[in-house]
Design a binder for these strands. Structure first.
Lengths: 221, 221
DNA sequence: GTAAAGCATATTGTATACAATATGTCGTCG
DNA sequence: CGACGACATATTGTATACAATATGCTTTAC
């Protein structure tokens, strides 16, 4: 009832396909046959193709001319490139937003507590972790930056999802979150930035072994 | 003939439309009627729509549901957001690439000289300026970052184009370029980064009055 | 004279049909 | 036995046809 105006099919299709990709339901390197997927989703190929082209532009699919779409593979190389970008953007967003007020710092704390408690429930922890970082950067006045940040995060979600069931990592993440929040509380913006950088480095280091990377990630720092 | 494989129509159409937008041939806020543009380009609506959706995703068009595509307006607000992002990304790319060798520094110098000489020829100066920044960041090993950077640059080109015919600014830019290159030559990466930030701030300040902005741009620093 | 309603038109959104290209199979030739 | 080529099939790329929605104009009621 709520929505007066139905979303166009190509938008719905995009969201549906994206969810399948993020959840790994459509595994990396899987070939996407338009006609089959279209029938599966109950739409025709036209809006589906628009959705697929959209996802290709976002990096979730690759399009080989005259051969079709394939789910983009997860690669250690991309992860090693993505995480520093994320760190850079979040740092900048944090900096531009200035020091958060006590209300937001408390909000961060409460979400982080729930995150620590949700260590057993990977999917919930995944959500809370995403929420924490969103809140952290929500003070940034640069909307364009936040949009780009959201795009990069979506790409990262696939990697996070692939390395989900690790309770130990969730606790470690929560600890680092607390350290960042503490620095912010002390008015130490630079320190918070450094901790944030370190946090993402830790995340990356924890991720790489799980997607079959042998080399380390120290190249970019 | 050279090309074995013809590019798909949707890709050709995208490029053609993008060029019209960047050149201002398709002015901001212009309504884009699919059937007319399709006939004009000599393709059907299907690949054209794919091209338009692509451009919408890149921020060059807006899509109002059931009303069609419009060329995205140039806004002082977007410019104020875009330029700091560009500065951030170029700084990071420069940092990740490490200090460039003498060969690349000389290359920067030669392009910058040609840029200074081309002050009268706006379009050529525009090209050379773009080339200079591309060279500056070409040492960055993070391909993903470079791709994103390219995307942001394309968006910026519209603004640069809108404020093109200013010989004075081109000379000023060339001077700042020289300062950055000099810092790099001295092995002062941090100094180069600061100069680069300042350079983009200068560019933004010069741009804002030309697109009808009254407020200043100091909010984000 | 003005405002609202309904019809006519234009345009987008989606589905289907057709054309071009790639892939796999089978048979034949060396 | 292996490799090459022709044909059959599957799939993508593009064009066209149809449906749904928005827009503008005319008409009519007050």
């Amino acid at each position: 009832m709520a929505r007066i105006r139905a979303k166009p099919l190509h938008a719905q299709a995009r969201q549906a396909v994206l969810e399948r990709i993020l959840r790994g339901e459509l595994a990396p390197d899987t070939r996407v046959v338009e006609s089959r997927l279209a029938e599966d989703l109950g739409v025709s190929r036209t809006p589906l193709r628009e959705a697929l082209m959209h996802l290709e532009r976002e990096g979730f699919l690759k399009l080989e001319p005259n051969r079709g779409f394939f789910v983009a593979p997860l690669s250690a190389e991309e992860a090693r490139e993505l995480y520093p970008i994320l760190a850079m953007m979040e740092c900048e967003a944090l900096r531009l937003g200035g020091l958060p007020g006590t209300a937001r710092i408390e909000y961060l704390g409460s979400v982080n507590e729930r995150l620590a408690e949700a260590a057993a429930d990977s999917e919930r922890a995944f959500q809370l972790n995403a929420e924490w970082h969103t809140i952290l950067t929500s003070g940034c006045p640069n909307r364009t930056l936040l949009k780009m940040l959201a795009g990069v995060r979506r790409k990262m979600y696939r990697y996070e999802w692939a390395s989900l069931p690790q309770a130990a990592r969730i606790e470690a993440a929560a600890e680092q979150h607390a350290a960042i929040a503490f620095a912010l509380e002390q008015g130490d913006a630079d320190g918070a930035g450094r901790d944030l950088q370190e946090h993402w480095q830790t995340e990356l280091d924890a991720l790489l072994p799980r997607i079959g990377a042998s080399a380390d990630s120290s190249g970019g720092r």
